[in-house]
Protein backbone atom coordinates (compact mmCIF):
# COMPACT_ATOMS: atom_id res chain seq x y z
CA UNK A 1 0.00 0.00 0.00
CA UNK A 2 1.15 3.54 -0.71
CA UNK A 3 2.21 5.64 2.26
CA UNK A 4 -0.09 8.56 3.07
CA UNK A 5 0.70 11.68 1.01
CA UNK A 6 0.98 13.64 4.24
CA UNK A 7 1.31 12.27 7.72
CA UNK A 8 1.32 14.54 10.75
CA UNK A 9 1.72 13.05 14.17
CA UNK A 10 1.59 14.91 17.51
CA UNK A 11 3.13 17.92 15.85
CA UNK A 12 4.07 20.84 18.14
CA UNK A 13 5.65 24.14 17.22
CA UNK A 14 6.46 26.78 19.80
CA UNK A 15 8.11 30.07 19.24
CA UNK A 16 8.88 32.77 21.79
CA UNK A 17 6.70 31.09 24.38
CA UNK A 18 3.79 30.92 21.98
CA UNK A 19 2.36 27.59 20.86
CA UNK A 20 1.46 27.94 17.18
CA UNK A 21 0.81 24.25 16.58
CA UNK A 22 -0.38 22.14 19.50
CA UNK A 23 -0.31 18.34 19.26
CA UNK A 24 -1.69 18.18 15.74
CA UNK A 25 -2.25 14.77 14.09
CA UNK A 26 -3.85 13.89 10.75
CA UNK A 27 -3.22 11.98 7.50
CA UNK A 28 -3.90 12.94 3.90
CA UNK A 29 -4.31 10.12 1.36
CA UNK A 30 -2.70 10.18 -2.09
CA UNK A 31 -4.87 11.96 -4.64
CA UNK A 32 -7.00 13.63 -1.98
CA UNK A 33 -8.19 17.23 -2.16
CA UNK A 34 -7.74 18.21 1.46
CA UNK A 35 -8.96 21.48 2.94
CA UNK A 36 -7.12 22.97 5.92
CA UNK A 37 -9.32 25.59 7.56
CA UNK A 38 -8.98 27.87 10.52
CA UNK A 39 -9.21 31.53 11.54
CA UNK A 40 -6.25 33.84 10.99
CA UNK A 41 -3.38 32.83 13.24
CA UNK A 42 -4.75 29.33 13.81
CA UNK A 43 -1.44 27.73 12.80
CA UNK A 44 -2.18 26.83 9.18
CA UNK A 45 0.81 28.51 7.57
CA UNK A 46 3.11 27.31 10.36
CA UNK A 47 1.99 23.74 9.70
CA UNK A 48 2.57 24.16 5.96
CA UNK A 49 6.01 25.61 6.58
CA UNK A 50 6.93 22.60 8.72
CA UNK A 51 5.66 20.25 6.01
CA UNK A 52 7.68 22.16 3.41
CA UNK A 53 10.86 21.94 5.56
CA UNK A 54 11.04 25.70 6.07
CA UNK A 55 10.56 25.29 9.82
CA UNK A 56 11.64 22.56 12.22
CA UNK A 57 8.96 21.23 14.59
CA UNK A 58 9.46 21.58 18.35
CA UNK A 59 8.28 17.99 18.76
CA UNK A 60 6.25 15.37 16.96
CA UNK A 61 6.77 14.33 13.38
CA UNK A 62 5.60 15.12 9.88
CA UNK A 63 6.16 13.41 6.55
CA UNK A 64 5.38 14.13 2.92
CA UNK A 65 5.18 11.36 0.30
CA UNK A 66 6.60 8.97 2.87
CA UNK A 67 9.69 11.07 3.61
CA UNK A 68 10.38 12.58 6.99
CA UNK A 69 10.33 16.39 6.94
CA UNK A 70 13.09 16.74 9.50
CA UNK A 71 15.49 13.99 8.43
CA UNK A 72 14.91 13.73 4.68
CA UNK A 73 14.33 17.36 3.70
CA UNK A 74 15.76 16.90 0.22
CA UNK A 75 13.43 14.07 -0.74
CA UNK A 76 10.52 15.97 0.79
CA UNK A 77 11.37 19.07 -1.23
CA UNK A 78 11.71 17.01 -4.38
CA UNK A 79 8.18 15.63 -3.86
CA UNK A 80 6.32 18.81 -3.09
CA UNK A 81 5.22 21.97 -4.78
CA UNK A 82 3.87 25.03 -3.08
CA UNK A 83 1.91 28.11 -3.98
CA UNK A 84 2.75 30.48 -1.15
CA UNK A 85 0.26 32.81 0.48
CA UNK A 86 2.52 35.79 -0.25
CA UNK A 87 4.01 36.55 -3.66
CA UNK A 88 7.29 34.76 -4.30
CA UNK A 89 8.08 35.57 -7.92
CA UNK A 90 11.07 37.59 -9.03
CA UNK A 91 9.24 40.56 -10.45
CA UNK A 92 12.26 41.85 -12.30
CA UNK A 93 12.49 38.73 -14.39
CA UNK A 94 10.18 37.68 -17.19
CA UNK A 95 7.72 34.84 -16.75
CA UNK A 96 9.97 32.69 -18.90
CA UNK A 97 13.02 33.45 -16.74
CA UNK A 98 11.11 32.70 -13.54
CA UNK A 99 10.13 29.31 -14.91
CA UNK A 100 13.63 28.65 -16.22
CA UNK A 101 14.99 29.34 -12.74
CA UNK A 102 12.50 26.93 -11.24
CA UNK A 103 13.35 24.19 -13.75
CA UNK A 104 17.05 24.58 -13.07
CA UNK A 105 16.81 24.39 -9.30
CA UNK A 106 14.58 21.31 -9.62
CA UNK A 107 17.19 19.66 -11.85
CA UNK A 108 15.01 19.28 -14.91
CA UNK A 109 16.97 18.44 -18.07
CA UNK A 110 16.78 21.06 -20.78
CA UNK A 111 14.32 19.37 -23.14
CA UNK A 112 11.90 18.40 -20.42
CA UNK A 113 12.25 21.86 -18.90
CA UNK A 114 11.38 23.63 -22.13
CA UNK A 115 8.48 21.30 -22.79
CA UNK A 116 7.01 21.80 -19.32
CA UNK A 117 7.54 25.57 -19.46
CA UNK A 118 5.50 25.73 -22.66
CA UNK A 119 2.88 23.43 -21.20
CA UNK A 120 2.32 25.27 -17.92
CA UNK A 121 2.30 28.67 -19.63
CA UNK A 122 -0.44 27.42 -21.93
CA UNK A 123 -2.27 25.96 -18.98
CA UNK A 124 -2.54 29.36 -17.28
CA UNK A 125 -2.91 31.26 -20.54
CA UNK A 126 0.25 33.32 -20.24
CA UNK A 127 1.98 32.02 -23.37
CA UNK A 128 1.82 35.32 -25.16
CA UNK A 129 3.16 37.36 -22.27
CA UNK A 130 6.02 35.00 -21.48
CA UNK A 131 8.71 37.54 -22.26
CA UNK A 132 7.19 40.43 -20.31
CA UNK A 133 8.74 41.47 -17.02
CA UNK A 134 6.55 40.13 -14.22
CA UNK A 135 6.28 43.56 -12.60
CA UNK A 136 4.05 44.62 -15.49
CA UNK A 137 1.58 41.81 -14.80
CA UNK A 138 -1.78 42.27 -13.09
CA UNK A 139 -2.37 40.58 -9.72
CA UNK A 140 -4.30 37.74 -11.34
CA UNK A 141 -1.60 37.11 -13.92
CA UNK A 142 1.07 36.96 -11.22
CA UNK A 143 -1.01 34.46 -9.28
CA UNK A 144 -1.50 32.34 -12.38
CA UNK A 145 2.23 32.39 -13.00
CA UNK A 146 2.88 31.24 -9.42
CA UNK A 147 0.47 28.38 -9.97
CA UNK A 148 2.18 27.49 -13.25
CA UNK A 149 5.57 27.50 -11.57
CA UNK A 150 4.37 25.32 -8.70
CA UNK A 151 3.15 22.72 -11.19
CA UNK A 152 6.17 22.69 -13.41
CA UNK A 153 8.03 19.85 -11.72
CA UNK A 154 4.78 17.87 -11.31
CA UNK A 155 5.01 17.45 -7.55
CA UNK A 156 3.22 14.54 -5.92
CA UNK A 157 1.87 16.82 -3.24
CA UNK A 158 0.90 20.41 -3.97
CA UNK A 159 0.43 22.87 -1.11
CA UNK A 160 -1.87 25.77 -1.83
CA UNK A 161 -1.80 28.48 0.84
CA UNK A 162 -4.84 30.61 0.04
CA UNK A 163 -4.21 30.31 -3.67
CA UNK A 164 -7.19 32.34 -4.84
CA UNK A 165 -6.98 35.25 -2.39
CA UNK A 166 -7.59 38.61 -4.04
CA UNK A 167 -8.55 37.16 -7.40
CA UNK A 168 -11.58 37.96 -9.53
CA UNK A 169 -14.21 35.22 -9.97
CA UNK A 170 -13.03 34.45 -13.51
CA UNK A 171 -9.45 33.77 -12.45
CA UNK A 172 -10.59 31.89 -9.37
CA UNK A 173 -12.78 29.60 -11.42
CA UNK A 174 -9.99 29.10 -13.92
CA UNK A 175 -7.51 28.10 -11.26
CA UNK A 176 -9.99 25.72 -9.64
CA UNK A 177 -10.67 24.01 -12.96
CA UNK A 178 -6.95 23.57 -13.25
CA UNK A 179 -6.67 21.97 -9.81
CA UNK A 180 -9.41 19.49 -10.63
CA UNK A 181 -7.78 18.64 -13.91
CA UNK A 182 -4.44 17.98 -12.18
CA UNK A 183 -5.97 15.65 -9.68
CA UNK A 184 -7.84 13.74 -12.35
CA UNK A 185 -4.91 13.47 -14.75
CA UNK A 186 -1.88 13.16 -12.50
CA UNK A 187 -3.38 11.93 -9.25
CA UNK A 188 -1.77 14.89 -7.52
CA UNK A 189 -2.55 15.38 -3.83
CA UNK A 190 -3.78 18.89 -3.08
CA UNK A 191 -3.47 20.42 0.37
CA UNK A 192 -5.36 23.68 0.47
CA UNK A 193 -5.88 26.46 2.97
CA UNK A 194 -8.67 28.89 2.28
CA UNK A 195 -11.08 31.23 3.97
CA UNK A 196 -13.69 30.66 1.29
CA UNK A 197 -16.25 28.16 2.55
CA UNK A 198 -17.45 27.76 -1.01
CA UNK A 199 -14.01 26.48 -1.98
CA UNK A 200 -13.73 24.39 1.16
CA UNK A 201 -17.01 22.65 0.32
CA UNK A 202 -15.41 21.26 -2.83
CA UNK A 203 -12.75 19.41 -0.82
CA UNK A 204 -13.00 15.69 -0.16
CA UNK A 205 -12.22 16.22 3.53
CA UNK A 206 -11.57 19.30 5.59
CA UNK A 207 -9.70 19.78 8.83
CA UNK A 208 -10.73 22.72 11.01
CA UNK A 209 -8.05 23.94 13.38
CA UNK A 210 -7.81 26.77 15.86
CA UNK A 211 -5.05 27.82 18.25
CA UNK A 212 -2.94 25.07 16.74
CA UNK A 213 -5.37 22.30 17.72
CA UNK A 214 -7.45 20.07 15.51
CA UNK A 215 -11.17 20.68 16.15
CA UNK A 216 -12.79 18.59 13.44
CA UNK A 217 -11.83 16.40 10.49
CA UNK A 218 -14.32 14.93 8.03
CA UNK A 219 -15.99 15.47 4.69
CA UNK A 220 -17.83 18.81 4.44
CA UNK A 221 -21.18 16.99 4.14
CA UNK A 222 -20.52 14.87 7.21
CA UNK A 223 -19.48 17.93 9.23
CA UNK A 224 -22.61 19.83 8.25
CA UNK A 225 -24.77 16.81 9.12
CA UNK A 226 -23.03 16.14 12.44
CA UNK A 227 -23.49 19.72 13.60
CA UNK A 228 -27.02 19.95 12.22
CA UNK A 229 -25.88 23.15 10.54
CA UNK A 230 -27.09 24.82 7.33
CA UNK A 231 -23.65 24.98 5.77
CA UNK A 232 -19.93 24.66 6.36
CA UNK A 233 -19.58 28.29 7.41
CA UNK A 234 -21.97 27.74 10.32
CA UNK A 235 -19.95 24.70 11.38
CA UNK A 236 -16.78 26.75 11.17
CA UNK A 237 -18.21 29.56 13.31
CA UNK A 238 -19.67 27.14 15.83
CA UNK A 239 -16.30 25.49 16.29
CA UNK A 240 -14.06 28.55 16.25
CA UNK A 241 -16.33 31.21 17.74
CA UNK A 242 -17.34 34.65 16.50
CA UNK A 243 -14.51 36.71 18.00
CA UNK A 244 -12.09 38.52 15.73
CA UNK A 245 -8.54 37.26 15.41
CA UNK A 246 -5.17 38.85 15.05
CA UNK A 247 -2.40 36.99 13.35
CA UNK A 248 0.14 36.19 16.03
CA UNK A 249 3.29 37.58 14.55
CA UNK A 250 6.17 39.46 16.08
CA UNK A 251 6.52 43.23 15.71
CA UNK A 252 8.96 43.49 12.82
CA UNK A 253 7.33 40.60 11.05
CA UNK A 254 3.97 42.23 11.33
CA UNK A 255 5.32 45.42 9.83
CA UNK A 256 6.89 43.50 7.00
CA UNK A 257 3.60 41.79 6.48
CA UNK A 258 1.79 45.06 6.18
CA UNK A 259 4.33 46.41 3.74
CA UNK A 260 3.91 43.25 1.73
CA UNK A 261 0.14 43.58 1.72
CA UNK A 262 0.37 47.19 0.58
CA UNK A 263 2.67 46.11 -2.20
CA UNK A 264 0.34 43.35 -3.22
CA UNK A 265 -2.60 45.66 -3.61
CA UNK A 266 -0.64 48.38 -5.34
Amino acid sequence: MNPPAIEVSHLVKRYNGLTAVDDLSFDVQPGELFGFLGPNGAGKTTTIHILCTLLAPSSGSASVAGFDCLNQPRQVRQSLGIIFQDPSLDERLTAWENLEFHGMIYHMPKLLRRERMEAVLDLVDLGERRHSIVRTYSGGMKRRLEVARGLMHQPRVLFLDEPTIGLDPQTRRRIWDLFKQLRAQLGMTLFLTTHSMEEASQCGRVAIIDRGELLALDSPQALVAAHRAENLEKVFLTLTGHGLRDEEVSGPERMRDQVRRLKRWR
Binding site: C52, T53, L54, R74, Q75, R77, Q78, L80, I82, F84, D86, P87, S88, L89, D90, E91, F101, H102, I105, Y106, H107, R149, R256, V259, R260
Partner: peptide, 15 residues
Protein backbone atom coordinates in the same frame (compact mmCIF):
# COMPACT_ATOMS: atom_id res chain seq x y z
CA UNK B 1 13.58 37.45 1.71
CA UNK B 2 11.38 40.53 1.81
CA UNK B 3 9.82 39.82 -1.57
CA UNK B 4 9.40 36.14 -0.96
CA UNK B 5 11.74 34.83 -3.62
CA UNK B 6 14.04 33.31 -1.04
CA UNK B 7 11.27 30.85 -0.14
CA UNK B 8 11.22 29.65 -3.73
CA UNK B 9 14.89 28.73 -3.30
CA UNK B 10 14.50 27.30 0.20
CA UNK B 11 11.76 24.80 -0.70
CA UNK B 12 13.70 23.57 -3.74
CA UNK B 13 15.66 20.32 -3.51
CA UNK B 14 19.04 22.07 -3.34
CA UNK B 15 21.45 22.46 -0.46
Amino acid sequence: REFGFLKEMLVAPIS
